[in-house]
């Protein structure tokens, strides 16, 4: 729980999420994933989900206490 109140945890988390948005490993993929949609759509939605959860943790544990 202490980790969730540490600002460096969020610096690392948000930096990692940003780096993951540059998804070079699926760059040339043309095969559809779900419902005929390409990987880039599904991947982006999943990453947005992770970002949303990160924001919840950030708001719940860091922004209220302003960290330490």
């Amino acid at each position: 729980m202490e980790l969730l109140r540490n600002k460096w945890f969020y610096v690392a988390t948000f930096s990692l999420i940003f780096i993951l948005s540059i998804d070079l490993w699926t760059w040339g993929s043309t095969s559809p994933a779900f419902f005929g949609l390409p990987h880039v759509i599904i991947y982006t939605m999943a990453l947005e989900g992770v970002l949303f959860i990160s924001f919840i943790l950030f708001a719940r544990y860091f922004w209220t206490t302003e960290g330490k």
Partner: peptide, 20 residues
């Protein structure tokens, strides 16, 4: 093409970090 979703949806969503 579809890739435009990536930069628009994620890029704008990530921008909300600046709200803090």
């Amino acid at each position: 093409g579809f890739a435009y979703y990536g930069i628009m949806a994620f890029g704008t969503g990530f921008m909300a970090v600046s709200f803090y």
